[in-house]
Design a protein around this nucleic acid. Structure first.
Lengths: 133, 133
DNA sequence: AGTTGACCTGGAGTGCACTCCAGGTCGTAG
DNA sequence: CTACGACCTGGAGTGCACTCCAGGTCAACT
């Protein structure tokens, strides 16, 4: 199967401009072209884009994604280095999740404070004593 | 207690430039000044900076942090809106954690693949049969 | 034959969140 | 008294990851 740039954009969730940008900066190997010179993305291209967006979601900088992409072109000999990059990214994602979890706790604490203030305000409204109790 | 800008930077984990920047864009009320006109940050200032960095860590844009900061200046009447902002941010953080968890799963899958490839390579090395088994 | 719409290229522009700089002022140590 | 280091100001510069633009090509419809 092959896909126009519009279709590839739709399926990958990236914009058309971003697809061309990723190609320019060598995140993505130049896809095949149709007879009119238009890009024709393969399923492999789409799968790779899917993985790239996962990496991006984890906050991996484009520089590192480019390194990974470049290693991929160098075949099986680069597998060790690629694995190392992923292991490092895994570590950084786990760390980030823990950090966000900490922020969640702070938010919960603050929100609970606001909720208590609300209950207090209700409590001093005339006739509302039973609600605040 | 009051702190020089260098000390405030050290304690908040922000740079001196960032502290002045946050003040300029009204994330932070102008701190007191000493007799020489230098900034003297209070404990309250430091606590607020601590909370700001939590919000920033959650990925809240500066625009929204400014809104929160501005509401804070308008006293108790704005508490409802402030709580709503925090509740929304809480939701977005929880979502982000789930998203990252999904990425973690993809990374684990890929890493496991690489590990399998490594075991296979070992397997075909002479005298290594028992390791790959 | 003409118009439309999707696509092409190289290059410029954008928004965000800082970060750096030049030139100047203070208060203290030598 | 001067040298130093920490601080001050307004404004310019940076890096990232896109995003937009002008001007052009091409196949298909009317």
């Amino acid at each position: 199967m092959s896909y126009s740039i519009a279709e590839a954009a739709r399926r990958s969730g990236l914009s058309i401009d971003t697809l061309r940008y990723y190609e320019r900066i060598k995140l993505l190997d130049p896809p095949a072209r149709d007879t009119a010179g238009r890009r024709a993305y393969s399923d492999d291209d789409l799968n790779w884009l899917g993985f790239l967006t996962k990496l991006r979601t984890t906050g991996m900088p484009i520089k590192s994604m480019r390194e990974y992409a470049s290693l991929r072109r160098h075949g099986v000999a680069s597998a060790g280095r690629r694995k190392a990059l992923l292991v490092e990214q895994r570590r950084s994602v786990a760390e980030r999740i823990a950090e966000l979890q900490g922020c969640l706790d702070v938010l919960d604490y603050k929100i609970e404070n606001y909720a208590q203030v609300e209950r207090k305000v209700l409590g001093v409204e005339p006739g509302m004593e039973e609600i605040s109790a």
